[in-house]
Design a protein around this nucleic acid. Structure first.
Lengths: 201, 201, 201, 201
DNA sequence: ACATCCGGGACAGCCCGTTCAT
DNA sequence: ATGAACGGGCTGTCCCGGATGT
C-alpha cells in the first residue's frame, strides 16, 4: 500500500491484503468450510507458495484476519451512518436499508461473513469464535453510542443496539432463504418500535 | 427417539429415520459442509452401504429431509406454545426463552440447522435453499396466526411474525458468538415493543 | 484370490496384498519417508481410492503390515536354511552369503526394510518401532534355535543369534555405503569365531 | 559450543558451523528425510535467508558437511580410545560400551547419522553415498591400525576392523528397535571372539 | 428390497526445499 | 548475507458409484 506512489488504480497490491479481501468475499457467499485455499488463491491472484509464509496459522488465521478486516469495514460504514443521520430512527433505517441493498444487489449471494463463520465454526474453533465475539460487540457499541446521543440511557441503548445487530443477522438468514428483502423491513419495524418506546417512555 | 410408541426394548428403528435424526443433530452444531457422510453413519448407526439406496440424492437429499423434519418438529413446538399461551406477549416470550434454553443447555453447540444450511448453501444448491424458504414461511405462519388471534390485522401479524422469526435466527448467531443468552433478551425486547405498538395503535 | 481359478500366473491378485508387497520393495530401497503414497499406488497398480478403506491407519499402517510381511518372509527363508544346513557354521555362512547376494544383485539398492524403518521412525512412531522390535526378536529366535540344535546353551545361543542379526544389519549399512559385499565377509568372520569359541569352549 | 576459546559471553558463533552441528544432531535422531530445512533453522538459530549463501548445494551439501564433521568427531574419539587402551580387547570393549552409552543416555534417540543417511540416501544421491563410504573407511582404518599394533597382520586387522564397524552399526539398529543395550553386548562378543582367534591363531 | 465391499478421482490443508530483491 | 516470497507435492479424506450377494 505504502510503496505504490503512482499507481493508476487497477494494479495488484499487497498479496497478503488481496488474500484477506478474497477471503472476506468468498466466506460471505459460501461459508468457511465451503471455500478452499485453492479458491482463495484463485480469487486473489496471490501466489500459492507464500500462503504459509504470510499466514502461518493456515486457513484459520486467514479467516481470523478476514473477520477483523470485515469488522472494521462494516464498523466504518455504521459509524459514517451514525454520524450523518439526523436522528436515531433514521440511522436505524439506514442500517437495515443498506444491508437489504447488499443482499438484493448481489442476488442474495453476499451475506455477513462473520455470521456464517460463527454458525459453522463456533463449536470447532475457539479462535474463530472469539474473533466473531469481538465483531458483534464492536458493532453493537457503535449503535449504542448513537442511541445514547439521542438521549437513551446506557442500558436502553445497549439493549436497542443488541436487538439491532441481532435483527440484521437474522434478516440476512431469512432473506437469503426467501430471496426477498422483506425480512429486513420486518426486522426494522421491530427495532424502530423499540426505539420509539424507549424514547417515549 | 422420544415418541417411540411401542418399542419392545430399545431396539433399532428405521435406519432411514435414524439417519435423518443424526443429520439434524449434527448439522445444527457443525453445519452442512462440516459434517461428512461418515459422521452421519457413525452417529446414526445406520448401515453404510445402503445410504444411496435410501437417499439416491446423496448428502443433499439427506439434508433436505432433515430440514423438513426439523421444520415440523419446531413447528409443533411453536404451535403448542401458541395454543397454551394466554396472550401474544407471553407466547413471544416463550419462543425466545425456549430458544435461549436450547443454546445454554447445549453449551451453545445446538443452533438452528435450517439457519446454518441457509447461509452455507443458499448460493450453491437451490434445492436446499428452497427447503429452507419453506421452513421460515411455515414458522412465520404459525406466529402470525397467533398474532391475529390477539386481534392484529393480517398485515401487522405477518410483519410481527417475520420480525420474530428473523430475530430468533439473529439471536442464535450472536449468542453462539458471545456464548451468552443476552441476545435473546435484546431480540425479545424489540419484538415485544412491536407487538405492543401494534396492539396499542 | 478366491475367484481367480484359472489364472495363468501373472495376473493381479489382491490389491491389498499388492500394496504391501510394493511397500516392502520400495521401503527397502528408499526408506519410509522417501516413499510416498503415490509411489506405492504407482508401483502396486492398486486403486488409489480404496487405500484408506484397506488401510484406515494410512501410511503407517501400510508400513506396519509391510514389516510383518517382511518379517515372515525372511523368517521363512532363515528357517529353510536352518533346516537344510548340516551344521551351525554352514547355516551362519548361508545367512551372510544370501544377504550379500541380495545386495550385489540389486546393485546395492535392496536393503532391509525393517532396519531402515527402525532408524528413521523409532523416535517418531512407537507403532512402527514396536513392529520392528518384534521382527528382530523373531529372526533371532530362529537362529538361536538352530544354535541350540548344535549343542549350544540357551544363553550362548541367544547371544550368538543376537550377534548374527546385528551383524547382518550392520553389514547392510556398510555394504550399501561402499557398494561392496566385503562387509558381509567381515561380519561373518566375527560371528563364526564366536560360534567356534562357544562350541570349543 | 564447548570448545569456544575466547568468547566474551555466550555470543553466537559461526552460523555456518551452527547449522552443521544442528544437522548432525537432528539427522542422528530423525534421518535425512525426516528433518526439514525449517528444523535446521530453528535448531541452529542461523538466519534462514543465508542458507543458500553458505551452502549453495542446499540440504544435500549440509548433509555432506555434517557427515564429514561427524566422521572426524567420531574418529577422534576412536583414536583417543585406541591410544589409551592397554590392549586391543579393551579398546574394542570401549567402542561398544561407549556407543551403548550414547543410545541409553539419549533414550535411544541418538543413533549414527551416517548409518541412517546411508540407508535412506545411498540409492538416491551418490554424493551422499560417497560421503558415507569415506566415513566407514576412515573409522575402519583407525581400528585396524590399533589391531596391527597388537600384532595382527594387516589382513586380519582389516577384517577385524570391518567386523567391528559393521557390528556397531547393526547394534545401533537393533538397539533402537528393542530399546535395549543388549545388542551391543552381543555384537561385542562376536568381535572379541574374532580378535582372540586371530591373536591365538 | 436391502446391505456390503471395494473402487474412484478430486481436492482438502499443510509444508517442503528453494530463490529473489535488496 | 538476509527476510520475504514461491511453485510443487505431501498425506489424508471427501462424496459417490459399480459389482456382488442375501
Amino acid at each position: 500500500v505504502s510503496q505504490a506512489p503512482a499507481d493508476g488504480g487497477g494494479a495488484k497490491r499487497n498479496p497478503r491484503e488481496d488474500m484477506i479481501q478474497a477471503a472476506m468475499t468468498l466466506f460471505r457467499a459460501r461459508g468457511y468450510e465451503g471455500v478452499g485455499i485453492a479458491d482463495l488463491v484463485a480469487a486473489s491472484g496471490a501466489p500459492r507458495g507464500s500462503i504459509y509464509f504470510h499466514f502461518p496459522g493456515g486457513k484459520e488465521q486467514i479467516a481470523v484476519e478476514a473477520i477483523r478486516a470485515a469488522t472494521e469495514m462494516v464498523a466504518a460504514a455504521i459509524e459514517a451512518g451514525a454520524a450523518s443521520a439526523p436522528t436515531l430512527e433514521v440511522f436505524l433505517d439506514m442500517v437495515f436499508t443498506e444491508w437489504a441493498k447488499v443482499l438484493v444487489e448481489s442476488d442474495y449471494e453476499k451475506g455477513c461473513g462473520v455470521g456464517i463463520i460463527t454458525l459453522e465454526m463456533a463449536s470447532k474453533s475457539d479462535a474463530l469464535r472469539a474473533a466473531t465475539e469481538g465483531t458483534f460487540a464492536r458493532w453493537q457499541g457503535i449503535v449504542a453510542a448513537r442511541a445514547e446521543r439521542d438521549g437513551l440511557s446506557p442500558t436502553d441503548a445497549a439493549r436497542l443496539a443488541g436487538a439491532t445487530i441481532g435483527a440484521v443477522q437474522g434478516a440476512i438468514v431469512v432473506a437469503r432463504a426467501q430471496r426477498s428483502p422483506a425480512p429486513f423491513a420486518d426486522a426494522a419495524a421491530g427495532v424502530q418500535a423499540l426505539a420509539r418506546a424507549m424514547k417515549g417512555g
